[in-house]
Every structure is written in structure tokens, then in C-alpha cells.
């Protein structure tokens, strides 16, 4: 028999290294001869989209497009340390450092423009599309490339951002271990085949607090990827660990979700800007995964009335639990 059930779960997630450990990101912004801006930082692109989101931030500050930002993050000898691409910290931490470096560069560019254009003040100067111009008299204009040409050395700014957390007391745990926190919730409908123990996800809704969305499509991509990883975690993935040995050490035996396993997911991006974050944006790479697993487990209970306290809920384990329950009921 096929039985359906619904489940919900919600979570909070503390981002960053946490617990008072200095969580530092550094970045350079540098004007290029052609008026583009290079960002140098040690933040790694692992597929999460750091290179893109962290290019959108300085583009916004400097009135440029992402194509005008040259993002350099691959070589330790020319980039400053920006911490690890983990702990859901790059958008917030390195995003802040890059934003500050870009703002500093903007200030310097405006000061140069005031001098070069023979103005008395920076009031009413606009920086857009690679140019700095006076809004009330647009002919008073200088391009970033023109400014670059006048420099004997490349114009370069540097910024550091350190997140704020407070170490917890070792006896009571009191402190401020993370900041900021991100929130999310997930609801799923499952169909359990009581003959085979198979769980199919029929429908899902997934809401993620992002502070501010920098790139909505990339956020959705994280949410869908996190959903799949959570499905694997609670339903399929089993290392076959026995006396310290991993028996399922191949992708033919260590089963991760395929396209066929995926339900339609309604992604809901919730915005509530965080004042200490770059444009209000908080990180989301990890929390997107977290509420999905328990929502599935709660839906399984709703469908067949068994509490699965051990994961993964493989068909065999679920079948056993259903049989057990039937026996008790009989």
C-alpha cells in the first residue's frame, strides 16, 4: 500500500568560525589600466558561487557590471588570506572586506576626480558605467581608465573585516558563539510504499532566510543542492562501516541521489537584511541542507506512524519498523 504524509522542520544556523576565534577576511581592490577593477582575495570558489556573488558586491559599490570586475583568488602569492570557504562565511565575511575595499577605492577615485575636473567639492559627483561625472553638468566627466592612466602606480586599496563573536564560558556555555544566524524551514510530502519500504518525496517547499539576496538563481541552486544532499543523508547514504572499514567506497554502492529521485521543490527566498552584512546579505551554503532531513523523517511518521530515530532510513530499516508496528498493533 502507498501511504502519504506531510512533515515540517525548521532550524537556526550560526555562521562563521564562531566562539570568539578571530574570523578575518582580507581583500584588495585595484584599478586596472582599462578602468576595470581587480579584486584580490583568498576566498575559494568551490562551486558555491563565491566568485560571482563576491564580484556583484564591488560592482554595486563602484557602479560597474560584473564584467568589469576581475576576480583573482587562485594564488596565495598574490592574494591576501580570506579564511576558509566553509562555515557559510564567505558572502558575509569576505563580502564585507571586499565591500570595504571597494568603498575605499571609490573614495580615492572621487577625490582624484574632484582635482582632475577642477571642482570645489565631491557633492553631486556620480560614479557609474566606468565614469565619474557631475550630475548637474554631465560634461564634467572623467573615465576610470583616464584616472588609471594618470597614476604612476596602480591605485590599490585594502580592507580587513573581522566578524564579532564572544567565546562561551566553559562551564555554562554562556556567550555569543555565532553571528549572524540564518534561519530556514522545510515542508515535504512523502509517499511510503509499505510493501517495499521505499520513500518517495512528492512535493516540497523550502524557505531560506538570506538577509538580502545577492543572486537569487544561485541561492535557489544552493537550496536545491542542499535538498538533494539531505535526501541522501536521511534516505540513501551508507558507508557500510564495519570495524573501521568503509565497504561502500564506490559510487555504485555509496548511493547519492540522481535526477530521478528529485521532487519538484518550491524555493522561497526570505529577505530580512542584516545591518552588519554586505548589503544585508547573510550566508546560506550550509543551512539550506539542514531542515530537509528532519522534515522528511516527520513526514514518514505522518505517513506510516513509525518514528525513525536512526538514519539513513533505508527501505529495509523502514520496512522492519513498519512490520514491528503492525505486530504491536495486532
Amino acid at each position: 500500500m502507498k501511504k502519504r504524509g506531510k512533515g515540517i522542520a525548521c532550524i537556526f544556523y550560526g555562521t562563521g568560525y564562531g566562539n570568539g576565534f578571530p574570523d578575518v577576511s582580507r581583500a584588495y581592490a585595484e584599478l586596472q589600466p582599462d578602468g576595470k577593477v581587480a579584486i584580490y582575495t583568498g576566498a575559494t570558489e568551490v562551486g558555491q558561487g563565491a566568485k560571482t556573488a563576491l564580484s556583484q558586491i564591488p560592482a554595486e559599490v563602484l557602479g560597474l557590471t560584473v564584467d568589469d570586475i576581475i576576480f583573482i583568488n587562485e594564488d596565495t602569492s598574490i592574494t591576501p588570506d580570506a579564511g576558509t570557504a566553509a562555515a557559510t562565511r564567505q558572502t558575509y565575511n569576505t563580502g564585507n572586506a571586499i565591500k570595504m575595499a571597494a568603498e575605499e577605492l571609490k573614495k580615492e577615485l572621487i577625490n582624484i576626480a574632484v582635482k582632475e575636473l577642477g571642482l570645489n567639492s565631491d557633492a553631486g559627483l556620480e560614479m557609474k558605467d566606468g565614469k565619474i561625472y557631475l550630475k548637474i553638468l554631465p560634461d564634467k566627466c572623467i573615465t576610470l581608465a583616464q584616472i588609471a592612466a594618470k597614476q604612476s602606480e596602480p591605485l590599490r586599496t585594502f580592507a580587513t573585516f573581522t566578524a564579532q563573536t564572544v567565546q562561551i564560558d566553559p562551564e555554562t556555555g554562556q556567550g555569543a558563539p555565532y553571528w549572524p544566524y540564518t534561519f530556514s524551514a522545510c515542508a515535504v510530502e512523502v509517499e511510503v510504499d509499505t510493501e517495499t519500504g521505499q520513500v518517495e518525496i512528492i512535493k516540497a517547499a523550502h524557505a531560506q532566510d538570506v538577509g538580502r539576496a545577492i543572486n537569487p538563481k544561485m541561492i535557489e541552486g544552493q537550496m536545491e543542492g542542499g535538498f538533494a544532499m539531505a535526501m541522501g543523508y536521511v534516505l540513501y547514504e551508507d558507508l557500510g562501516l564495519e570495524n573501521g572499514r568503509i565497504w561502500n567506497n564506490k559510487l555504485s554502492t555509496y548511493i547519492i541521489p540522481t535526477a530521478m529521485d528529485m521532487p519538484e521543490i518550491q524555493n522561497i527566498i526570505v529577505e530580512d537584511p542584516e545591518s552588519t552584512a554586505p548589503y544585508g546579505a547573510k550566508g546560506i551554503g550550509e543551512p539550506v541542507m539542514i531542515p530537509v532531513g528532519p522534515a522528511i523523517l516527520n513526514a514518514i511518521y505522518d505517513a506510516v506512524g513509525v518514528r525513525m530515530t536512526e538514519i539513513p532510513v533505508t527501505p529495509m530499516k523502514l520496512l522492519q519498523a513498519i512490520r514491528e508496528k503492525e505486530k504491536q498493533g495486532a
Binding site: 541552486g221 543542492g225 538533494a228 544532499m229 540522481t258 535526477a259 521543490i265
Partner: peptide
Amino acid sequence: EIKEGISGNLCRCTGYAKIV
């Protein structure tokens, strides 16, 4: 049919939705 067509190709990042 799309899901079936790409089911022999694993992706660990995207959850496949945007690929479909």
C-alpha cells in the same frame, strides 16, 4: 524524460532542478 536522460550522470551540487 529529461530526468531519465540525465539519470546516468551524477551531480552533487545542484540537486538537478536547474539542469532539468
